[in-house]
Structures are given as structure tokens and as C-alpha cells.
Design a protein around this nucleic acid. Structure first.
Length: 273
DNA sequence: ATGCGGGCTTGGTTTACCTCA
DNA sequence: CATGAGGTAAACCAAGCCCGC
């Protein structure tokens, strides 16, 4: 169901936006059971077009990273360059079976895992959960990649990890979190949109109720039209004139309408004129 | 057709790190 | 300068789905 349909059916609000949405293209298999992953309600509301919200994060992340780069992050970077995918990263995974699944699949990471364990036990113990802050460049590249595909296939993950000097697991996690943030952002935007929609429809409902009252009063005052069903009377919301279809509509204030005329505030307000 | 394991996703949570008052 | 609160994001976990065997 299109969102326009939702609006046109009356005062009903719902999250039926996905029908007109655009699924983000994904190179890997997309989940077929998830109805609302990554959509942009562009077909009905141009002002609310929503990309992958990368812009926002682009603005936030670098700000932090730039500051960070002066101190901590810079040292991390140097550290990383000195001993590649070193695990200033999360190497606490040594005791976790699930993590091992990811790591053991790649030769590249076998050595990495070993060094991770060593470093952890040396520094913080086996269960330490050290966190890596990605550098500005890493974030930018990840964002760039995310704009192209919101999900990664194993090859892409590997390539990106190599390029960024990160572990594939880190790239994977970054994409997971990025998708989650995108969805959250999208939900917030949708929520705002629906609030506005609700307000507009409430106003419209109020106005129509008022018109109905006026028409009822008019009907009582003018017996000539007493046999006309109220539902067949239409009124243009913009010019506030009662009208209808056909050429005779302009001659008579009342006319027979083929169907109830609902005003959709999100299309063309004056289309009925 | 059915069961199983692996790989993937999402949703939610935890927690290290950062910023700012 | 120290500190605590709050925010951000990296990492984790659980559950569910899909697919190949």
C-alpha cells in the first residue's frame, strides 16, 4: 500500500511506507523477511528524502576523530602501522567460540589472533575489552563503501579489511552498527513525518467536521437540496468553495461526486481546483 | 521431506572512550 | 586540573532466516 493511499483513505496513520520505498541495493543476499530495512520514502514526500544518513555521521564522526587524532587516535594509528592489525583491537575474544568462527576462517587472521592474545594477556589480561577508535580515513572509507553497499559479501569484507588494515570481523561489526544507526535515523525521520502527517490530518478532520456542520445547517435552511446525500458534496480545501465534477459544477454550488473527495495535504493542495 | 550446521542478518545490550559542564 | 554525566560507537550476544549438504 502506498503512503498516498494511507492518507487518502481518511484519518488513518500507519507505517505502511515501505511499498513505495527503495530497497538499498545489496551485493550479498538480502534478508527477505525483513520488511523495513533501509528504505527511503521518496515517492510521496520529496522534502523527506532520506539517504543513508551518512551525511550526519560524516559530520559527527570526523569531528571526534579529528580531536582524537591529536592524541590517542594518533598513537593508535602509529601503533597499527608499526604492527599491522595489532590488537589494540578487541582481542578479548580468545575465549569466545563465536568470534573464533570468524577468525579461524582466514589465514591472514590466524597470525593476527595469536598476536592479539599475546598482547591482551600481556597488557590487560585475557578478558580485557579494548576498543579501537577508527581513524578518520578508515571511517571515511567505510562510509564510502557503505554508500555503495549497505551489506558486504565475504570478498568485499576481506578486501575492505585489507585496505583498512583491520580485521574482517571489525569491518563486519562496523557495517552491522552502521546499518543499525541508519535504521534508527530512518525511524526517527519516519516518526517525525508521521507526526506531521497526523497533525495535518487532524486539522483537516477538524475543518471537515466544521464544514459538515455548516452544510447540515445549510441543508436545513434550504429544503431544495434536502434529498442530496451529504457525502456527495465536495469542497475544495484550498478555495473553500463547494464544488464537484463536470462542467456544471461551476453553475451549481452542489453536485454529485463519483466518490468522496478527500484532501491529501501531501500531494497538490490545489489540485482539486 | 527433513534435520543439521554454517553464514548471515537484525535488535538489543554492554562498555571503552570522548566531550563538556 | 579533576571529575562525573551523558553521548557515541565498537564489540558482543541471542535469535531467526536462508542455504547447501
Amino acid at each position: 500500500m502506498d503512503f498516498n493511499d494511507v492518507c487518502n483513505t481518511g484519518l488513518v496513520l500507519g507505517l505502511g511506507l515501505t511499498a513505495s520505498a527503495q530497497e538499498s541495493s545489496s551485493p550479498s543476499k538480502a534478508p527477505k523477511n525483513k520488511a523495513c530495512s533501509n528504505f527511503t520514502p521518496t515517492s510521496f514526500e520529496p522534502s523527506l528524502t532520506l539517504g543513508l544518513s551518512g551525511e550526519n555521521y560524516h559530520q559527527v564522526v570526523p569531528r571526534k576523530i579529528i580531536d582524537v587524532n591529536k592524541g590517542y587516535e594518533e598513537s593508535i594509528d602509529l601503533y597499527r602501522q608499526a604492527s599491522p592489525p595489532h590488537s589494540a583491537v578487541s582481542s578479548f575474544s580468545s575465549g569466545r567460540v563465536k568470534r573464533e568462527r570468524d577468525l579461524s576462517s582466514e589465514e591472514v587472521e590466524a597470525a593476527d589472533r595469536v598476536s592479539s592474545r599475546i598482547s591482551d594477556e600481556d597488557e590487560d589480561g585475557p578478558n580485557a575489552r579494548k576498543k579501537l577508535r577508527l581513524t578518520k580515513e578508515q571511517s571515511a572509507l567505510l562510509e564510502e563503501s557503505f554508500k555503495q553497499h549497505s551489506t558486504l559479501n565475504p570478498k568485499q569484507k576481506q578486501a575492505l579489511a585489507r585496505q583498512l588494515n583491520l580485521r574482517p570481523r571489525q569491518v563486519e561489526v562496523w557495517f552491522q552498527n552502521r546499518r543499525a544507526r541508519t535504521k534508527l535515523k530512518q525511524t526517527e525521520v519516519d516518526c517525525e513525518f508521521l507526526k506531521k502527517c497526523c497533525e495535518t490530518l487532524t486539522d483537516e478532520n477538524r475543518r471537515l467536521q466544521k464544514e459538515l456542520q455548516e452544510l447540515k445547517a445549510l441543508k436545513l435552511a434550504q429544503p431544495l437540496y434536502m434529498h442530496m446525500p451529504a457525502a456527495t458534496l465536495t469542497m475544495c480545501p484550498s478555495c473553500e468553495r463547494i464544488g464537484g465534477v463536470g462542467e456544471n459544477a461551476s453553475k451549481s454550488p452542489f453536485s454529485m461526486a463519483p466518490k468522496p473527495h478527500f484532501y491529501n495535504p501531501f500531494t497538490n493542495p490545489s489540485a482539486a481546483c
